[in-house]
Design a protein around this nucleic acid. Sequence first.
DNA 1: CCGCTGATAATCT
DNA 2: GATTATCAGCGGA
Length: 185
Amino acid sequence: MPPDIYAQPVLNLARALIGCTLLHDGVGGVIVETEAYHAGDPASHSFAGETTRNGKMWGPPGRAYVYRIYGIHWCLNVVGGAEAGAAVLLRALEPTQGLDRMRERRGVTDPRRLCSGPGKLAQALGVSGAQDGLPLDLPPFALLPRAAAAMLATGKRIGITKGADEPWRFGLAGSPFLSRRFPDP
DNA sequence: CCGCTGATAATCT
DNA sequence: GATTATCAGCGGA
């Protein structure tokens, strides 16, 4: 990705990532769903300031912020935004490469169930806390620009209680690989 | 198709 | 001690 992509306001970054391709060890696909979080946002881990867990959110942009949620799942974010303490949660991919590895890790075969949610995505790509802070433009990761313009859908973020009405979830309209459909306009 | 529930542990108060 | 940016499985319609 061009480095200046990461330096724009985090809402724009969240939109710009739709349609880009993310790979980890050659396994991954096209980003079809994202959510934006930033330090002025009560739903964000960065809202209460810098802590041990969220430290990468204040680090260099274009890197991974990986955290564990509900003691079970991992979630992968792209650190970025013109503002400090911002990140984009990657919620769903359209699997295109390494389908067999994803099926092994996930224990399902339906491609729509491999990466259709933040926890599933991290599991399918083999991402865990070990990758926290790694640059997404360098091995073992790769983040590639999209080939064509994406038809964007916008909606409220999922699974949060604070800031729940903010329309900071973005997706590829009509994609069958979303964690949830966007409401019809 | 939809909604509910248990699992499970780091993080923060 | 409460909360949590989740998921799979289950039961019902």
